[in-house]
Write a protein that binds this DNA or RNA. Structure first.
Lengths: 142, 142
DNA sequence: TGTAAAATGGAACACAGTTCCAAATTGAAT
DNA sequence: ATTCAATTTGGAACTGTGTTCCATTTTACA
């Protein structure tokens, strides 16, 4: 039968706490595994992934994929509420991932919904291209 | 010493030919492996990846990553010149990848360049979200 | 304290992609 | 035609991310 209270999932809390402590940054599952191992409180990979899935389902974390090479990144949802819903810009040259917090985002989302019936998930979307620095560099190239 | 002519890399030509025959579509490395196996001209995985890398380097193919789950997709570069520059929309639910050919794209690119000094590579960028069908479905869910 | 539900994590797997290396193919010089 | 080194090929094994399966441990509560 269903329990009235939740089980004491201290590991899940610990994971959430760790991610919360990483202000304004992205963490991968592998980094979490490594962190708890280095703290002598190792948590199995399976458990990490399970908790991350649940935390994302519960809306406490956000998951997004930056590319197909490194794995998914996680960020504490509260961090995302204090800042806006935002997209990410990834520079193809230097690899830097920058947050994009811009009111034009709403226009973009409105456009895709109205004209293409497509509901954009901004948090999961990464725009690829060249950052200011790297597009400057390419002008200097021989 | 350096050869004056290239070796006859018939497999590379065959791969390029195959991808060229797939009009306006995306092909993964795995699909290429499968295709040549089914044609009774199997090509090893290693060789496929090697040639794909070279073809991309030579500008004959374009590679882009649609998500972290399925692998990279390849498309013949000429196809991309005949059709418009476009983005892709990927539905998180059904996984469908649709081409987006829309003049608003220019506005979006202009915005990012003007306001964020970021040169968007539309071809490599995939917008995630829900397609018309799947966002309809989620309303029906219990 | 007993018990069922829930949590945990190791082993094995799936998949994309890479590295290593030995064998086969090639172009051209002899 | 024969030889030979550069090049091409592909199998085996590996990396890294993530998942599935399942036996063990922990938990809440009666």
């Amino acid at each position: 039968m269903a329990r009235s209270t939740n089980y004491n999932t201290r590991q899940r809390d610990a994971i959430l706490e760790y991610i919360t402590s990483i202000k304004d940054a992205h963490v991968t599952a592998a980094q979490i595994v490594e962190y708890f191992a280095s703290e002598n409180k190792p948590i199995g990979r399976t458990t990490i992934y399970r908790h991350l899935d649940k935390l994302v389902d519960d809306g406490k974390l956000r998951r997004y994929v930056t590319d197909g090479i490194s794995g998914a990144c996680y960020q504490h949802a509260a961090d995302l509420e204090t800042c806006h819903v935002h997209m990410h810009l990834k520079c193809e040259d230097c690899g830097e991932l920058q947050h994009l917090d811009c009111e034009a985002l709403d226009d973009i989302r409105d456009h895709f919904l109205a004209k293409h019936s497509f509901t954009v998930n901004a948090m999961k979307t990464v725009l690829y291209g060249k950052c200011a620095n790297c597009s400057k560099d390419s002008h200097d190239a021989p």
